[in-house]
């Protein structure tokens, strides 16, 4: 028996492409954020509302990841923003190569911000770097306040946490302890920015917009 040491990252092929994307975003002074959540947390609604409300302030391009259909890209295009749909045909996450290819189809020179909507999944996408400047995790209140402790990795790695569908609270149909969710997310990630929002009613969205505008401005300098 002969043993050889390898010491190689198993996903190094993906990371090579992620590094190319990092360089590309830096050269273009483009901010890229990777949105990750369970299916149905409201990512696309957050995106369409954000794009519409910030139309005069930030030029956004979107990369949509889904297993099937271009429903989400069509919803984005209806706002007037450019969008590219990636169908993963069963894969549970987006990979860096798919992002490189999608970037070629976006008018990047005219954009300030690329928002990636990852495949709805709170687990696998967190393991694949796409070259983004940061991850945004979305949790909707109907999913439960225990998600930060049950799925810690994505909460530990994200720059911001959007707690969506806050309009469902207060009526008694949904039990969600906002303080518990916040405290659990902050225990693993003390710099995470937390925004309770309702993309449906617009409640809380302005704090998220301010953060987004500041992040874009910081990235430009």
């Amino acid at each position: 028996m002969k043993k050889i040491g390898v010491g190689k990252k198993i996903l190094s092929e993906n990371e090579k492409f992620a590094l190319d994307n990092i360089m590309f975003f830096a050269e273009q002074k483009l901010l890229c954020l990777n949105m990750i959540s369970s299916p149905g947390s409201g990512k696309t609604t957050i995106l369409t509302r954000t794009i519409n409300d910030l139309k005069d302030k930030i030029k956004v391009g979107v990369i949509e990841g889904d297993i099937q259909t271009d429903i989400d890209a069509e919803r984005i295009k209806a706002t007037g923003a450019p969008a590219v749909q990636i169908n993963t045909e069963g894969a549970c996450h987006l990979s860096a190569t798919q992002i490189s290819a999608a970037l070629k189809q976006l008018p990047v020179a005219d954009l300030d911000l690329i928002l990636i909507e990852n495949v709805g999944n709170l687990v696998c996408p967190s393991a694949f770097e796409l070259g983004e400047n940061g991850k945004i995790v979305v949790l909707s209140v109907a999913e439960g306040d225990d998600k930060p402790v049950k799925y810690p990795a994505i909460f530990a790695k994200s720059k911001a946490l959007l707690i969506n569908k806050s309009d469902l609270l207060g009526g008694g149909q949904v039990e969600f302890d906002m303080d518990r969710a916040k405290a659990d997310a902050q225990r693993l990630n003390k710099t995470i920015e937390i925004f309770p929002i309702s993309a449906k009613t617009g409640a809380g969205m302005s704090a998220w917009y301010d953060w987004l505008i500041r992040s874009v401005a910081k990235n430009r300098t």
């Binding site: 028996m1 002969k2 043993k3 050889i4 040491g5 390898v6 010491g7 190689k8 990252k9 198993i10 996903l11 393991a127 530990a156 693993l188 990630n189 003390k190």
Partner: peptide, 20 residues
């Protein structure tokens, strides 16, 4: 109290054994 997470270990292939 609060703490800082240190970098997580990456997913790595450390060694391979071959038949001789």
């Amino acid at each position: 109290g609060t703490f800082e997470l240190l970098p997580d270990a990456p997913l790595i292939i450390e060694e391979i054994s071959f038949q001789t």
